[in-house]
């Protein structure tokens, strides 16, 4: 997937659009499948779906280069798929199996891939923010030309450690992009009930960090903003904030009675603002693809997702000895 991202940039916009369509659809179908497996009791505990927000991570990954890092919250399945992690390994982690990225020991909220530069998967709201700045600190210290995408929610934006991090990130000019995924709600609390700030990205101004609001339902707008932020960081100008306006269609996690918003509110956004439908329209009206070609992609994605679900059911539970492994490291590989 990494390789295709590079080529996507130089290719025609039709190919690009098809790629975004495919990537977003993979996330949506994957999440629907995860919801289904949860309903069957194959996935346990908390499981936070990304449905509705697909354009955010797909747009930003399109702006990233190989070696750039990313870190996010517990709502992490989409980020992992978009950065090229294997759907099978992700789904098997959701089912708590040996074939999962963390051997079944992390679960939905705690997954990592050093190979794909994905640093979690963090269950404590806001904790990933200084960690993201720390990854950027390491890159700057080592003289790497890398950028870290640090994703967090509108709710997390009210955590104190976010502002501690803004302060140091700007003080030390760290190459970190703070991506606020503003999906309007933190569990059942709307942004308006959590803060009087008119916008979240503007809070960076107190620290001298530039930023902007981005339409998170438009993958091309997200990509363009991402490219601008990446250029800013890579030029050594320090952090950048993107407040990406998005929407989650499903409940906060699986057990969400959804009494804090109306069915109509959700339905309206699904019908009028859906990011995947948007790209679908662009593809069809721009004659970049036919209905049949898109159907074929749908089918192919369904196949990938079904394979991941089969793998996640068939992969055995971790061996009982795994209870005692990885508490302490004997040696940790130290390459950056």
């Amino acid at each position: 997937m990494a390789a295709r991202r590079k080529s996507a940039k130089s290719n025609t916009s039709g190919d690009e659009l098809l790629q975004y369509y495919r990537d977003m659809l993979l996330i949506r179908r994957f999440e629907e499948k995860a919801g289904q497996l949860y309903g069957m009791g194959l996935i346990g505990g908390f499981c936070h779906l990304y449905i509705g927000q697909e354009a955010v991570v797909v747009g930003l990954e399109a702006a990233a280069d190989e070696g750039d890092k990313r870190v996010t919250s517990y709502r992490d399945h989409g980020h992992m798929l978009a950065c090229g992690m294997d759907p099978k390994g992700v789904m098997a982690e959701l089912t708590g199996r040996e074939g999962g990225y963390s051997l079944g020991k992390g679960g939905s909220m705690h997954m990592f891939s050093k190979e794909r530069h994905f640093y979690g998967g963090h269950g404590i709201v806001g904790a990933q923010v200084p960690i993201g700045a720390g990854l950027a600190f390491a890159d700057k210290y080592l003289g790497n030309d890398r950028v870290t995408f640090t994703y967090f929610g509108d709710g997390a934006a009210n955590q104190g450690q976010v502002y501690e991090t803004y302060n140091m990130a700007m003080l030390w000019a760290l190459p970190v992009i703070f991506v606020i995924e503003n999906n309007k709600y933190a569990m059942g609390t709307s942004v308006q009930r959590a803060t009087k700030s008119p916008s979240l990205w503007e809070r960076g101004a107190s620290f001298g960090i530039p930023g902007e609001e981005v339409d998170g339902m438009d993958v091309l707008a997200v990509k363009a903003a991402g490219e601008k932020a990446v250029a800013h960081c890579r030029a050594g100008k320090g952090p950048y904030i993107l407040e990406v306006m998005t929407y989650r269609y499903r409940g906060h996690s699986m057990s969400d009675p959804a009494k804090y918003r109306t069915r109509e509110e959700v339905q309206k956004i699904r019908e009028e603002r859906d990011a995947i439908e948007h790209v679908r329209d662009l593809l069809l009206t721009g004659k970049h693809a036919t209905e049949d070609e898109l159907k074929a992609i749908d089918k192919e994605i369904k196949g990938i997702v079904n394979d991941s679900a089969d793998f996640a059911r068939e992969s055995p539970e971790p061996s009982l000895d795994e209870l005692w492994t990885h508490v302490y490291a004997a040696e940790v590989p130290q390459e950056a």
Binding site: P130, I131, F137, A138, Q161, E164, N167
Partner: peptide
């Protein structure tokens, strides 16, 4: 100053930055 770094008074923040730096290959 690259390796001996004064921080602001911000324990939660710099502990987290330290953790991220360790994930990123530093000690």
């Amino acid at each position: 100053a690259r390796r001996v770094i004064d921080t602001p008074i911000t324990e939660h923040g710099f502990a987290g930055i330290g953790v991220g730096a360790a994930f990123g290959g530093l000690r």
